[in-house]
């Protein structure tokens, strides 16, 4: 009798969470998926099914094509820069640096701040100025330092708009990547390095043959985290730039919000959300499956 109750209790206690997640995550995603196949492109719901029509229209839409390209550029720049800067800083901080704690804490500070806050600050820093004001923000700083060739239109320049947004995101997340790598480096037993050093390996060889392979799981995990953040990016873009000139800063998450709640295209908006979910799933599901297998 007791045994049976002991088997039931845990299930009873985890059930509320399971049901809630079941409804609010999986149920709602299915609901959104259903909407994306309907004709609900007006204020009032219309659940007439029209197959893949919304998806066909979506991929023919130039704004969406631009969004996909922006997402790709943003993701590549953001993820690679965070990894490189994070690794570099972690290795440097691992060299028995004086006041390491201060550096580390300052590098990580942006992580604690809301995207909306950083969006507001970077909007002013990357403001290119105007004919009355001349250079302001970062451009003015460059001008003062004699680095005039670096001044540009930032997020107002359709060619590089999305890169300006990426810089703000890198500012926020590279310190975090540093912390991940630093934890990884600290986890490598010192004996391992010392042993290799005795074997006559130089510093570079130790990094290349011993340390980098050991950091691979961290890089993998960081790519998952940074990658899904960059695909989802919304708050930062809204607060910093909006869609930008000719949609140069636009991203699918913002397009979804606009299409749904401004343009009243609920089914169209749902289809954007589903594509976004699929993109993220491509990244996340293999990761979840692999960790699940490891556990089981």
């Amino acid at each position: 009798m007791r045994l049976k109750r002991d088997k039931l209790m845990p299930i009873l206690f985890i059930m509320p969470s399971v049901i809630t997640v079941g409804v609010f995550v999986y149920g709602f995603i299915s609901w959104t998926g259903f909407i994306s196949f309907t004709k609900w492109n007006d204020v009032l719901p219309n659940y007439t099914l029209i197959g893949f029509e919304n998806y066909r229209k979506l991929f023919a839409n130039m704004r969406f094509q631009i969004d996909l390209r922006n997402t790709l550029v943003f993701t590549v720049i953001f993820v690679i820069s965070c990894l490189l800067i994070g690794l570099l800083l972690a290795i440097f901080l691992d060299q028995k640096i004086k006041s390491e704690g201060i550096f580390r804490n300052l590098f990580l500070l942006p992580m604690a701040i809301s995207f909306v806050v950083s969006g507001v600050i970077w909007r002013w820093l990357f403001n290119p100025g105007s004919i009355q004001l001349g250079n302001i923000g970062v451009n003015q700083l460059f001008e003062k330092l004699g680095l005039n060739f670096l001044t540009c239109g930032w997020y107002t320049d359709p060619k590089i708009g999305i890169i300006a947004v990426a810089i703000a995101a890198i500012w926020q997340f590279s310190g975090y990547t540093m912390a991940l790598y630093l934890a990884g480096l600290r986890g490598i037993p010192i004996e391992l390095r010392e042993a290799s050093a005795i074997d006559g390996a130089d510093k570079w060889q130790i990094f290349y043959y011993i340390i980098f392979p050991l950091l691979r799981p961290i890089t993998f995990g960081a790519i998952i985290i940074l990658g899904h953040i960059s695909l989802k990016i919304f708050d930062l873009v809204v607060a910093m730039t909006g869609s930008g000139p000719a949609f140069s800063c636009d991203v699918p998450a913002l397009f979804m919000y606009d299409t749904t709640f401004r343009g009243n295209h609920f089914a169209q908006g749902a289809s954007i959300a589903i594509i976004l979910l699929l993109l993220i799933s491509l990244l996340i599901i293999p990761y979840l499956i692999s960790t699940f297998r490891k556990e089981a």
Partner: peptide
């Protein structure tokens, strides 16, 4: 694992 997935979804896919 199923619960964990909820952490990664873009919330756009559930807002409507």
């Amino acid at each position: 694992t199923m619960i964990l997935f909820g952490m990664f979804i873009p919330y756009q896919s559930i807002i409507i």
